[in-house]
Computed example of a mutant assay.
Amino acid sequence: MASQEIQEMLGVSRTRAYQITNSKSFPDPVAVLSVGRIWQTEDVERWIKAHRPDLQDSEG
């Protein structure tokens, strides 16, 4: 998952997404490519569940 996708999932600006993904609580990226950092989808979803529960899907 790229930072653009995280930005869209969180519904925040690019600047805010950068701040969030650089916070100590956010998971470390699994890769750093020339196009940017890449995270495991599961790690990001787990972080959202813990830190932004209002954004979770209601699939249950």
Rank of each mutant, 00 (worst) to 15 (best):
S25M: 00
V32G: 09
I38Q: 15
S34I: 11
G11R: 04
G36L: 11
G36I: 11
V30C: 08
R16T: 10
I20A: 02
T15H: 04
R14A: 12
R14P: 06
V35Q: 14
K24W: 10
A17C: 14
E8Y: 01
V35L: 09
K24G: 01
P29E: 00
T21F: 05
G11H: 03
T21I: 10
P27H: 02
P29K: 00
P27C: 00
L10W: 05
V32H: 14
L33F: 13
P29I: 06
R37T: 04
T15Q: 10
D28C: 08
K24P: 13
V30N: 02
Q19T: 08
S34T: 13
V32I: 15
V35N: 14
Q19M: 08
I38R: 15
R14I: 07
K24Y: 05
S23V: 01
S23L: 03
L10S: 02
E8K: 14
A17D: 01
V32F: 10
S25G: 00
S34A: 12
D28R: 13
V30H: 04
P29F: 02
V35R: 15
D28V: 09
L33M: 14
Y18M: 07
V30K: 12
A17E: 02
G11M: 06
A31C: 09
T15W: 01
A17Y: 08
S34Q: 13
I20H: 00
M9V: 03
Y18I: 07
N22I: 04
N22T: 05
I38D: 05
T15S: 10
P27K: 05
F26I: 07
V12G: 02
T21A: 02
G36S: 09
D28M: 12
Q19Y: 09
R37E: 04
T21R: 06
M9K: 15
R37S: 09
L33P: 12
R37Q: 10
T21W: 05
A17R: 07
R16M: 11
